[in-house]
Amino acid sequence: MIDGIQPLQLLWFGLIGLLFVIFYFLEGFDYGVGMATHILARNDNERRLMIQTIGPHWDGNEVWLITAGGAMFASFASWYASLFSGYYILLFFTLFALIIRGVSFEFSAHADTVKGFRFWVWALFFGSLFAPFLLTMMFGSLIQGVPMNAAGNMSLGFWNIVNWLSIVAGVAGVLLCLIHGLNFLRLRIDDPDLSRRAQDLNNKLYIIAYIGEVVFALLVIFQTDFFQKRPISSIVITLAVVVFTVLSQIFNKTNHQAWAFITSGLTLGSVVVLLFNGLFPRVLIAQNPANSLLIKNAANGQLTLQVMTIVLIICLPIALAYIIWSYVVFRRRLKVQAEK
């Protein structure tokens, strides 16, 4: 195998990448819809409608993040340990965002005053904004290489976490989630006016997204070793990101709603692929290359990987089947309802 990496180790590195791709594809849109409650919606009825479109799905979507984290723990414990303890404060704020967002769905449904409802919708908005911002920011930061000792303990300074690349990555992540969320919203509502406004807003957002993608690509070229270490694949995947954005924009303009949604999701997915492709064969890049955490060193034992592979082969298709079924059940488009 490549560099002494075992097949199962490679498989699980790929699977964790895949889990993050699915996470961004699915939870990406409900972050986007969460942001739309204050970017696009004009009144509480529209906000209620938006929340309803993601109501049955957001929790299941978040499980992809939990699964990705759990799979990282189960297959690369050292990676999980170094990453989570290293990005301590950033992850705490991410948790904070996920918490206020997670409870906002139930709490806003229970609120019977306008004030209470609006408070929890603001919680949804900020949670949906900061969760993807901070998570993508973390990825933008870690791909540049971090100060890490041989034991795998990081000593991150403020500027390791907050710098041009990480901020651009975070903003781009938020932007792509918003675009993706608006595409999802259009698929799920029967409201010509709101749908029209979402389409118009997206038309503008795609332009900003291009700028973001170009700046992001340039910073990745200069701030990481991705394009030196894996030039061809990195170029191909970067192009894929752009192509999916272009396609999504065209589909949005021509009102092919389902395709616009799929391609905006694939845009997000390809960004994740770009990051994982660049990381390979490492899982964490240390500023001193000798301390980098490699797939072959960070991986858990063979038996654990075998067990996890069997569990995944059995569980994932079943889970996917009922998750897809749940989207089929909720396929009917929703209308704005008068105040409860």
Partner: peptide, 15 residues
């Protein structure tokens, strides 16, 4: 502990 502890957590999520 990750080699042992992670598996049940991941299975919990999946299953």
């Amino acid at each position: 502990m990750g080699d042992i502890f992670g598996a049940p957590l991941a299975i919990e999520a999946l299953l």
